[in-house]
């Protein structure tokens, strides 16, 4: 027995002995290179499953199965409202991430009451100086409006077609939570430019929080950073808007859609 390392599986020699095209050789070389490092063969079954999933056939819907498309096609937009709100959410996320490059959540810079603050100025800068900045802000605002509208209409569709019934109560409750979070998303975003209406909307928010019995003062401090509005309020609204809510809402949307996937779409009959 020699101490020399034995390579029983000489894949490269096997590769040379084959009569392969350039593409095949390149593919196999890459595959062997990756497999030596990551042992892809262990995940082969998963890959196979994914391959077949990509060619999965969606089950026919009730209307397709009984050939009712000619009668019900005009209902279809109402059944796409949920995915439309997700789409608007994605557009808002992308445009919001771009806006975040230029926005600064700060009330600094106001010498007297009513002077523009750094936050206000940064939004002005976005709208006037940044290339396509005005369009970017417009897209962000309008996608938010579209999302809220789509979510409301989605809820009405679900209500009037009785889709919330018996096995689907949990998803209905989850939907109510998601509507509340969507509105909170809108509210926090409304405060960020720190214009006159933003400020007084936040003021009403603080007053509402303070009116709550027992937890009121605690909630006001947690959400608004104190009983009067200022730098702390703006930063908290900003963190809620760009960090906490995105994670929470995305996770809940995934759960919401996942439950629909598991339970199936409730079609009218």
């Amino acid at each position: 027995m020699s101490l020399k390392k034995q390579d029983e599986m000489d894949h490269n020699a096997w590769l040379k002995s084959q009569d392969l095209t350039v593409i095949e050789t390149a593919f196999l070389t890459t595959l062997i290179w990756l497999d030596k490092r990551l042992r892809i063969v262990d995940y082969l079954e998963l890959l196979e499953t994914m391959y077949y999933r990509a060619n999965l056939q969606m089950p026919k819907s009730h209307t397709e199965q009984y050939d009712l498309d000619n009668k019900f096609w005009y209902w279809y937009p109402l059944y796409s409202l949920g995915s439309l709100s997700i789409l608007a959410y994605l557009v808002a996320a992308v445009s919001g991430a771009l806006l975040g490059f230029y926005y600064s959540p700060s009330t600094a810079g106001a010498v007297a009451q009513g002077d523009p603050t750094a936050a206000y100025d940064s939004v002005i800068e976005i709208m006037q100086d940044v290339q396509f900045g005005f369009m970017l802000r417009s897209i962000h605002r309008w996608s938010a409006q579209f999302m809220v509208a789509a979510v409301f209409l989605h809820m009405l569709r679900v209500y009037f077609t009785g889709s919330y019934k018996e096995p689907r109560e949990v998803n209905w409750i989850l939907g109510i939570v998601l509507i509340g979070l969507t509105l909170l998303f809108g509210f926090t975003g409304y405060v960020l430019p720190w214009k006159q209406l933003s400020f007084w909307a936040a003021q009403i928010g603080v007053e509402m929080a303070l009116a709550t019995p027992l937890v009121g003062e605690w909630a006001a401090q947690l959400l608004f950073g104190g009983f009067t509005l200022g730098q702390a309020t703006l930063v908290r609204m900003y963190i809620l808007h760009v960090f906490i809510l995105p994670f929470v809402v995305t996770a809940l949307i995934a759960l919401h859609v996942g439950i629909v996937w598991v339970q199936g779409i409730a079609e009218p009959h």
Binding site: T107, A110, Q113, G114, D115, P116, T117, Y120, V123, I124, M127, F134, M135, R137, S138, I139, R141, W142, S143, Q145, F146, V148, G186, F187, Y190, P193, W194, K195, Q196, L197, S198, F199, W200, A201, I204, L229
Partner: peptide
């Protein structure tokens, strides 16, 4: 829609002056 209807932008925040109309979205 966002190209055709650009958003309005108001006055900067002024804690000293309550606006005549306070409205959310």
């Amino acid at each position: 829609v966002s190209a055709l209807l650009p958003p309005h932008f108001g006055e900067p925040a002024n804690p000293g002056v309550t606006p005549a109309i306070i409205l959310p979205d």
